[in-house]
Nucleic acid binder design. Structure first.
Length: 852
RNA sequence: GGGCGCUUAGCUCAGCUGGCUAGAGCACCUCGUUUACACCGAGGGGGUCGGGGGUUCGAAUCCCUCAGCGCCCACCA
């Protein structure tokens, strides 16, 4: 069939993808080495962003490469319910309709969100298709599917029975706007300007006072002690005495604790165990009571708070209390400082530390196992530095709060005895609000699991653990590919849960890609307004171009600005492939359909020799997860070697069977990077019995005669030199003369065509300008052009001199001769000799023209 | 306060365990109506690899140091 002049991606991509899908090209084969990747499940409700495009590009490149290696590949897609994220989106939608989550019962809200997500499902699946991800859709997993939920329960139950789960009243990071707690790593810390107030707390029954320093005067009503450092000479006499808490009648003790830094503030700290986590620890050590004075809606409550302040928000209360303290003369100083404030990563409201009963996982033993696995080298990290970072994280990891006060998630299968609050039982009947066990009524915990609790089981879950055949065949995963930002949040937990549940690491290799930033290196974020939609770029340049743009120049772990010029480069490459195919198709002759593949001339040997070389290099780079470099290798073979040299040379006498074989071989190596265009070409040109490129193995074309290949390198050298000389002298119509050069005698016609010469003729050694060192051939040029040529010669001469000086220096260095590897020294000697003879030739040439 | 990373051509970046004249894409200059391709072809310009010091026969690559930028962790109230 006839191909159009240029490749139009959007004309083919959709139908190519459905062809792949219909033909079962993405199902694992029955033979070969196992290779498995599970796609990090995107949020089921959101559009894909540039980070997804990068993830999918890398994973799909790896997967398609392994199919071509003959491996038995499975690539499992999925989606995450993304609990909090999705509920936030849904609440925003409700807000637009003038409603809020409080207008619905938990059950109705859950149902509504479920439908909302289901109705959006096509959006992201079609985007994954558009990006060309060769996933097996029949294996699709959603994180609220029954098996996933069951699995989360099994893990929770196992932990429960192993004593790794506990429920306790702890300080949690709480967003009063969103009404839920967060894990420590989910809190965003920002450096902000604030005040450090010094407040005087008078002694009871004697004169004097201690001056505490605080940034949060409004928590004063929750104070249950004041602490000083036990070794602080200033305050020795105060330890054990009693202070009167300002604005109240309450009396609190002065305690001594090493936690207090004598150099910060006044060296005196008010202790508020219910609203500060350090204070919470101090409180535990000193058996202090905990008084909550801020409620879950962010307002001052509790009867500890004087009536006039009750019901105020935290910031209102701060102002009112400061005024009152000031009026009564308690404020001693007001210092402006910068300090870190924890904020909600969604709404930017300050995160409050509030006392709550929550489910925690004791992660210490899990982290220790993970450290062991890392030390034993069971997981390869790209980049390697990440394994150190992860180890450090495990070493200081704290218990994991897995309760979330939202409805969109997996209900926690725990029930509380209505009459005995500390009696909790494990039970999976979460669809019931209450259950009766042993004559006692138990009420379900209204909370759901942290999304990361279920998604951290993704590697084995997606493979149908525990009984699934995929689990037996493909676990541990060959590769987990994800963003550097998820090292702690996800990867650390996958490793811990994988080891805990399956006794094996969940993946053998983990590859972290960096963040995709904008042209100025900033994160893409809605608030800056620099977010790009991969689908827009895809529609303009094609899916293949987007992939190439994403991966070229990209290395593991490094952030990378998205620049459109790389996408343009990718599009151009696709078009180059297309036109190679066009040319090849035009050469095709039906009467020679079954012609044998033979290597006829030196160009044939050269290109096959080149191909076999680059194929090896390409595989090495791919195996080392150096995708960008592998792409470059393929790119230059196809563009430079095949298109610019081989095809140009073969226009004289096309070797059609070889051309066609080279095209097919090129399609296979380009396919991981540019699946759509390569498949489109394959579909339109292949006479192969297996019509689908996807899954086609690498094509071997060798062996070639290396000597003849090298002969062609000489031809190339002559051609390049002639072109350069022609350009330097401005000569248009020139002939090449040669004497006693069999190679030129035989392949003069190739040189003539490639260098656009008038002719190539045999002649006795004569005039004309020398084309190549060590070869008896000359370019016949007009006398008028000689001046230009001499200038050209001068620059060549000084270049050669520079090189000789450099080599002489090196060879004149005794230490170099003695200590450098012998072959390197030998190489330098050869180079020096070559350079000398080249210079000699150039000088002779100059003399020749200087004295005609 | 700790830890880590980056600084290479105009732009965005490669350059693995130190070894030919430091590479790519895009941009730039000159030439080209060669029927595969102007999303092209040919030729070319452009970098003392952030500064300084050290190790080495040899450093963009290893070490130290300074400067600038960035990230992560850390709840000094």
């Amino acid at each position: 069939m006839r191909l159009e002049k240029s490749y139009q991606p959007n004309k083919y991509e959709t139908s190519i993808y459905s062809l792949w899908e219909k033909s079962g090209a993405f199902l694992p084969k029955s033979t070969g080495n196992d290779y498995s990747i599970v796609m990090p499940p995107p949020n089921a409700n959101a559009n894909l962003h540039m980070g997804h495009a990068l993830t999918i590009a890398i994973e799909d490149i790896a997967v398609r490469y392994h199919r071509s290696k003959g491996d038995r590949v499975v690539f499992v897609p999925g989606a995450d319910h993304a609990g909090f994220e999705t509920q936030v989106v849904y609440e925003r939608k409700l807000a637009n309709e003038g409603k809020s989550r409080f207008d619905y019962s938990r059950e109705d809200l859950y149902k509504n969100i479920y439908e909302f997500v289901a109705s959006n499902r096509d959006i992201f699946t079609s985007q994954i298709r558009a990006l060309g991800a060769s996933v097996d859709w029949s294996r699709f997993v959603f994180s609220l599917d029954e098996p996933v939920v069951k699995n989360a329960y099994a893990t929770f139950s196992k932990m429960w029975h192993d004593g790794l789960i506990y429920r306790g009243e702890r300080l949690v990071n709480y967003c009063t706007y969103h009404g839920t707690a967060f894990a420590d790593i989910e809190v965003l810390h920002k450096e902000e300007k604030g005040h450090l107030w010094s407040i005087s707390y008078p002694l009871v029954n004697e004169n004097g006072a201690l001056v505490v320093a605080t940034t949060r005067p409004e928590t004063l009503f929750g104070d249950t002690a004041v602490a000083v450092n036990p070794h602080d000479p200033r305050y020795q006499s105060f330890i054990g005495k009693t202070l009167k808490l300002p604005l109240t009648d309450r009396e609190i003790p002065v305690i001594a604790d090493d936690y207090v830094d004598t150099n910060y503030g006044t060296g005196v700290v008010k202790i508020t165990p219910a609203h500060d986590s350090n204070d919470f620890e101090v409180g535990l050590r000193h058996n202090l009571q905990r008084f909550s004075v801020i409620d879950f809606d962010g307002k001052m409550t509790s009867d500890r708070v004087p009536k006039k302040f009750r019901g105020l928000t935290v910031s209102q209360a701060r102002e009112a209390i400061l005024n009152e303290l000031s009026d009564q003369g308690f404020i001693v100083a007001d210092e402006k400082i910068t300090h870190n404030v924890g904020r909600c990563y969604k709404c930017d409201n300050p995160i409050e530390h509030l006392l709550m009963d929550q489910w925690f996982v004791n992660v210490r033993p899990l982290a220790d196992n993970a450290i062991k696995a890392i030390e034993e080298g069971k997981i390869k990290f790209y980049p390697t530095i990440k394994s150190k970072q992860l180890k450090r994280y495990y070493e200081q990891i704290k218990d994991w709060n897995i309760s979330r006060q939202i409805v969109w998630g997996i209900p926690i299968p725990a029930f509380q005895n209505e009459n005995a609050p500390y009696d909790w039982i494990y039970d999976e009947r979460v669809s019931q609000e209450t259950i009766v066990v042993g004559n006692m009524t138990y009420r379900r915990d209204p909370d759901v699991f942290d999304t990361w609790f279920s998604s951290s089981s993704w590697p084995y879950m997606a493979l149908g653990y525990p009984e699934g055949k995929d689990f037996t065949d493909f676990y541990p995963l060959s590769l987990m590919e994800t963003g550097v930002d998820l090292l702690q949040q996800w990867v650390s937990r996958m490793i811990m849960l994988g080891l805990y549940v399956t006794n094996e690491v969940p993946f053998k290799t983990v590859y972290f890609h960096g963040m995709v930033t904008d042209g100025e290196g900033r994160k893409m974020s809605k608030s800056i307004g620099n977010v790009l939609n991969p689908m827009d770029i895809l529609n303009e340049y094609g899916s293949d171009a987007v992939r190439i743009g994403m991966i070229s120049g990209n290395t593991a772990g490094k952030n990378q600005p998205f620049v459109i010029s790389k996408v343009v480069g990718g599009r151009n490459f696709c078009n180059k492939l297309w036109n190679i195919a066009r040319f090849t198709a035009e050469q095709h002759k039906t009467d020679q359909e079954n012609a044998k593949l033979l290597l006829n001339n030196i160009a044939d040997h050269w290109i096959v020799w080149r191909y076999e070389n680059i194929l090896n290099k390409y595989c090495q780079l791919m195996d080392a997860y150096r995708f960008s470099e592998a792409y470059e290798i393929a790119y230059h073979f196809i563009w430079d070697d095949l298109a610019d040299w081989y095809i140009e040379a073969s226009k004289l006498q096309p070797n059609v069977p070889l051309l066609e074989a080279l095209l097919r071989a090129s399609l296979v190596i380009a396919h991981p990077f540019a699946p759509f265009v390569t498949e489109t070409i394959w579909q339109n040109t292949s006479t192969d019995s297996s019509p689908l490129l996807s899954g086609h193995e690498f094509i071997r074309l060798g062996p070639a005669d290396v000597k003849r290949g090298l002969d062609f390198e000489k031809i190339k050298e002559i051609v390049v030199s002639v072109r350069s000389l022609k350009k330097a002298t401005g000569a248009k119509k020139v002939k090449l003369y040669y004497h006693d050069e069999p190679l030129i005698a035989e392949y003069g016609h190739i040189i003539k065509t490639l260098a656009k010469l008038e002719d190539v003729e045999y002649l006795d050694p004569g005039q004309g300008i020398t084309v190549a060192n060590n070869l008896n051939c000359w370019l016949d040029v007009d006398q008028k052009l000689i001046a230009d040529y001499l200038l050209h010669l001068e620059s060549k001469i000084s270049e050669a001199k520079g090189r000789i000086d450099q080599l002489k220096d090196r060879l004149g260095n005794k230490n170099y001769i003695e200590r450098a590897p012998k072959d390197l020294v030998e190489q330098s000697r050869t180079q020096a000799i070559e350079a000398e003879s080249e210079l000699e030739a150039l000088l002779q040439e100059k003399v020749r023209f200087d004295n005609p």
